[in-house]
Design a binder for these strands. Structure first.
Lengths: 328, 328
DNA sequence: CTGAAAGCGCTAACAT
DNA sequence: ATGTTAGCGCTTTCAG
């Protein structure tokens, strides 16, 4: 035996303080009581701490928000998560987190939901129809960093399409036409939105090439292709790909931006510290989290679940990795 | 009214399936039952989900681990956190997280502990004596990324002292003697450990200067000092400071590593993508988290709390930001 | 302002 | 294998 005794209950505090359980309960709920000092002393002496399981059971709510992310150690998600945590803790909510990199998304959601009053799903990968059915028994739920048409839950995303268009416009202003898009996770909403921007850009005279670059081998291949097909600017899915690209280009003695321009996306940290500093898009991760929380909060408080979708704007951050195209 | 009905209880499932509550309970606990199919159907039909508050209350445990970190969006902590999350979820534990950047540490710990079976404190900033008293009523607790002598709880840290010594040895091998340490958070354990290494290095002929560099202004000042006092190598508290230093040096047209060498610490991401790639120390963040979890798990299962302290080794990663000293 | 009592949803003897 | 029953610790009517 480790000699660990059962923790004190409200009953024991009541006895020690010479009042009834109800009085102790009221004391903790902030109601006026006759002898607060006596109670405080008893609580202190016993090391009493309210049992939240009992409380939650009685109250029928947990004051906990469940958040599922694909990778806790990805700065992108970590920032969203922090924003949710800070915003929700302001109103006394706790943050229960699941990293879905190893478990199935479904399962993770299900178990999270069991201990939380509501869920925030970060960029769920499930396809729309699967998500649609899941969301029904997970409710209240809000989806963040993805738009899922048809799913009856608030969805808050970033206008990647417009932002990427902004990046394209910026490069085109500097004379670039043969632009390569170094794509990210193929089936993700974020990637699809960025691709749409290139479709649109054709109308304006851009000559885009889409190259997969989500993993290391693909990236090498993409760089080779870009280097040999007359590409003058590489627009990457995110800062990590941009950073890796620049680093590999350096090894090949190709200078950025003098010989080829490169852009990032998200502005998550490497971008401003790189050499050259990377021109990118500032994705409002904190706003994303805060907005997701406020939507969820409304739902928890009884609002009707609608398919509201919010698209936050993101702005281009011009730095040094894009230069005017060299005159041939 | 939002028309949200109370969620179904085990009782309703029992009635629908034509058995008693106990049978349903057993069904969910994996005991053999006569008619599993019927139960599954009832559960499905009602959309029943076990109420974990009730379960926790009855069982006297939450199967939740509480983790407090100073900044959820710092890759350093995020990696530790992920490791804890993955390891604990393997045995069915949930992860409750608190970001202590805004709240008082004490308060955050207290509220976390209320809903968790045990706590992992990440680099708590409280001083030893405060921590010592707190730990007593938080138990079971484990402290990670810091050693706090006198505190009766397992503590798992990284041997920063030895690692920094390794970095110093590496630079000295390349001829450097006038070495500047760009210090981090002044009162932190991690910073103190690194400083100790410089103390020791004097014995071997190093001529160290300690310069505060925790914020942007200090960093500028430190760089100016280093540039004018004959420093040939800058060893930074972490990769972020190293990266920022290199970036500022570049603006001053000082070449790294040709004119001055720079090292980082932790290897958290910027280090390998920088130009030049940064020589650093690989801090075993994942191991830190896993180890912390296994210590906590033992405590939760009834082990005696002792002041065990574990120091994990970290190795130097030689890259390109340190060069042999230029012959004067 | 306070106490008595009922019950939140679930589990675990105990008896069958 | 199943049903009955007694709480787990707390909040909240309801009476005083």
């Amino acid at each position: 035996m480790a000699g660990s005794k059962a923790p004190p209950t409200i009953q024991e505090v009541a006895e020690l303080a010479g009042v009834s359980k109800s009085t102790i309960s009221r004391y903790f709920s902030g109601f006026p009581v006759r002898n607060p000092e006596q109670i405080r002393a008893a609580v202190e002496r016993l090391g009493y701490r309210p049992n939240s399981a009992a409380r939650d059971l009685k109250n029928g709510r947990t004051r906990t928000v469940g958040v599922a992310v694909r990778d806790l150690a990805d700065l992108y998600f970590a920032r969203i998560l922090r924003a949710i945590g800070l915003a929700s803790s302001e109103v006394g909510f706790h943050l229960l987190v699941a990293d879905t990199s190893l478990t199935s998304e479904r399962l993770a959601y299900e178990t999270l939901r069991q201990r939380a009053d509501g869920l925030i799903l970060c960029a769920p990968q499930l396809d729309d129809s699967e998500l649609e059915s899941l969301v029904d028994d997970l409710r209240p739920v809000v989806i963040v960093d993805r738009l899922a048409p048809g799913v009856r839950a608030p969805q808050v995303g970033v206008d990647f399409y417009a932002a990427m268009l902004g990046l394209i416009a910026h490069t085109m202003d500097l004379g670039h036409r043969r632009i390569a898009y170094f794509a990210g996770p193929p089936r993700s909403w974020g990637d699809r939105e960025r691709r749409r921007a290139f479709e649109t850009a054709k109308t304006f005279g851009a000559i885009p090439t889409i190259l997969e670059a989500a993993d290391s081998d693909q990236l090498d291949a993409a760089i080779n292709t870009a280097l040999s097909d007359g590409t003058t600017a590489i627009l990457s899915f995110d800062d990590f790909i941009a950073s890796s690209t620049i680093s590999r280009l350096r090894k090949l003695d190709v200078s950025v931006p003098d010989e080829i321009s490169v852009t990032g996306f998200d502005d998550v940290g490497y971008a401003s510290l790189s050499n050259p500093e990377i021109t990118t898009v500032r994705t409002p991760l904190g706003d994303l989290g805060e907005r997701a929380w406020s939507e969820l909060r409304a739902l928890i408080e009884g609002a009707e679940a609608t398919a509201t979708s919010v698209l936050l704007p993101a702005e281009v951050v011009v730095r040094a990795s894009v230069a005017a195209i060299a005159k041939a």
